[in-house]
Design a protein around this nucleic acid. Structure first.
Lengths: 222, 222
DNA sequence: TTTGCTCGATGAGAATTTTAATCGTAGAAG
DNA sequence: CTTCTACGATTAAAATTCTCATCGAGCAAA
């Protein structure tokens, strides 16, 4: 597995390079933005680690450009900033995950493994209209805005978005999201659908989560 | 797959026999208790459906005797009673599940399938000292007493009991029971261990859930 | 043995999740 | 077209789950 690190501080990239090579990844470094993008676009890498701020071109811009060509290669941001405003753009630019400096190497390794594991098919980012849902970071955006959801709300939305366009029966939802296998006689789903619609502010014009009377719900782009 | 039904009411057993045969199970009937046990002990069956009350010998007694010989063959009770007192004995006798009359055939079928599915290895009943935990019915007994646990309490206890004798690290517990994969910096486990010890009334003498300092917890029979 | 430090126990409060009851509306029946 | 019924929407309250702060015990170092 080949990893490209775009990062200008030798202290950090040497530390990373050594650690990752011990884990038997092949690691290349780019200290400058344009060079980084150029290398990334060569298509030889299985994963990108981008620093937020690099000379020449921002990590975000590299990510955006890279995404145009490579839809499935995971991108992880290394960032000192954890303000909401900043991470939004990272996610919008198509990043799969981000990690705040300073971080434990172990944790970064874990996240790299998570991203490389599925490789075949499994996606971590789902879109529905102007809603973006990222399963690794557990974040949801509507347009520019971060929507804060609880565990169950997130799980339900994820289920619906994974099955975009397909009508989801209540019984299946209960099985997948709530792990209940007999007895579908509960109203929880309705309550959570309600909460989602409210938090996502889905009005008449943006009715992304539609009710299918007698059956269940569908996520649809109208 | 062969199923033995021990039940004296023709109305019920004919209905069951027909339905199950349509699902391509081989079905035998015993209308009387002793005969039922004798057939069961022949070892030709993959699953037993026992009525609570049959002439000659109670379903419970059949179950108990049967369990001595066959540890892994699933037993499901058909019962009109749903009082706590009664079902306790069923579970103590080693039943894997029970269903209350009147029941929908679909539901019984579901439960039969659940019991037959794992077949290889997977158990649904776990013991730890005088504690019995049944994963299909989601019930826990301590001696004669039913212990009412919440979902999470149950899930944690199940995890510990599945790993009886093995020290469970916090990180593994968090992954399995809570499905959290990074960040182990939460105290939830402790809180739930505390709740379990309280509800199960584990004193000094019955310290079935032991703390392993710096690592996690073990379920042990002292 | 004593001291200090870390980790687990415990309890209380906040947040989430679930249940339950009521209201409104779509679709069926008349 | 009107009425009835059943299902979903919605709200409030109960139960569970989680977080946080404090306390106490175990272990190591002096």
């Amino acid at each position: 597995m080949r990893i490209l690190i775009v990062e200008d501080e030798p202290g950090i990239y040497n530390f990373l390079k050594q650690g990752l090579e011990e884990e038997s990844y092949a690691v290349d470094i780019a200290e400058e933005g344009k060079k980084g993008l150029q290398l990334a676009l060569s298509g030889e890498y299985d994963l990108l680690l981008l620093d937020w701020m690099v000379p020449g071109m921002s990590g975000i811009e590299i990510c955006r450009q890279f995404r145009k060509e490579f839809k499935d290669t995971p991108v992880i941001f290394l960032t000192a900033k954890d303000t909401v405003d900043e991470t939004i753009f990272g996610l919008q630019a198509g990043a799969n995950d981000y990690i705040k400096k300073p971080f434990h190497f172990e944790e970064l390794l874990e996240r790299i493994k998570v991203q490389l594991r599925p490789k075949s098919g499994e996606h971590s980012i789902f879109k529905l209209g102007n809603i973006t849902l990222n399963t690794t970071t557990h974040q949801v955006l509507k347009a520019e805005e971060v929507i804060s959801l609880t565990q169950k709300e997130f799980a339900l939305l994820e289920y619906l978005m994974r099955n975009k366009g397909i009508v989801c029966r209540r019984s299946r939802i209960i099985e997948s999201v709530w792990d209940i296998h007999f007895e579908y006689n509960t109203g929880v789903i309705d309550v959570y659908i309600n909460a989602l619609r409210k938090k996502l502010k889905l009005g008449e014009d943006e009715n992304y989560i539609q009710t299918v009377r007698g059956v269940g719900y569908v996520a649809k782009e109208i």
